[in-house]
Design a protein around this nucleic acid. Structure first.
Lengths: 153, 153
DNA sequence: ATATGTGCAAATGGTTTGCAGTGAG
DNA sequence: CTCACTGCAAACCATTTGCACATAT
């Protein structure tokens, strides 16, 4: 994906601008986040980095992820049961759909969020800066799996 | 408020149906949640209960709140920085606006959430069951406070 | 009478922090 | 060469759990 290369370049640029160093471990984490399709957890990132750098510590992953989060180069999703997940592809707030069956997280197209935001603003007088919009339910696959409750043979 | 009395009665009924007991501490927690206007945290509830029952433990508050949460008689709001907050007035999912200045949480009227939900469902194929919709920003009071940065005398 | 609820304290689990050694710039 | 980064382990903090006693039903 050309996009993920652009994301990676952007992340590197931001870190440089902040005077941060680009260690091999850190670069590996950046790559994982820039290419991430599945909203990985810190633990997931940790396991992936360890494939290349076996001595990497969890603290280093947290450190780098937080660095990017504070620079708005990664979006943090907060879930009560699933733990925090990270999106390095679209580091700006956007709606998510989370399957309560398999845990899959998808980024649906969404045109009507803007209207909702404006409605919230006008009803509250708030100056809205960002949001967290999560929809929970069953993905198509889990719906099918649920319709045939393990009895077919 | 007549509403909060109804909420309290409903909570009590649900606990009874589950064969749970109504201890004085538990009743106090139920009342706090049924009347809650400000989305209290467990810690806040704990402090309030202790005013009447000084020996109450945090564990008891967690226990009762979770009981109600699982019975859908209380709505849990999950925030990364603010910690979990609870709404015993409207125990069903609804949008919230959170002030990043003072921490106030309000429940705005909202007509266009249904459309967004349907858009999400049609774009993902998910069967949506519930949601978490949080808008963050500055409440009117904090906007004014910010406009005059402590220099006026 | 009984088994749920209570209070206390210890356990848990995800995240952060302190520190001494390492290495990117 | 210097200072940020790393890895490890300990610290943190909200929440949960275990246990013996108390009590609502």
């Amino acid at each position: 994906m050309a996009d993920s290369q652009q994301r990676l370049d952007q992340m590197i640029k931001v870190l440089k601008n902040k005077g941060r160093r680009l260690t091999p471990q850190r670069l590996a984490i950046l790559k994982i986040l820039a290419q991430s399709q599945g909203h990985p957890s810190v633990e997931t990132i940790y396991e992936m980095v360890k494939a290349t750098f076996p001595t990497t510590s969890l603290a280093t992953v947290y450190n780098t992820v937080n660095l990017l989060k504070n620079a708005h180069e990664v979006l943090e999703l907060d879930f009560h049961n699933l733990g925090s997940r990270y999106d390095g592809n679209k580091p700006y707030p956007h709606p998510h759909a989370i399957c309560t069956g398999c845990g899959e997280i998808v980024d649906p197209e969404c045109g009507s969020l803007e209207g909702l935001t404006q409605e919230m603003a006008s009803h509250t007088g708030f100056h809205i800066t960002h949001h967290q919009v999560y929809f929970f339910g069953l993905c198509p696959r889990c719906q099918k799996a649920g319709q045939v409750p393990e009895s077919s043979g």
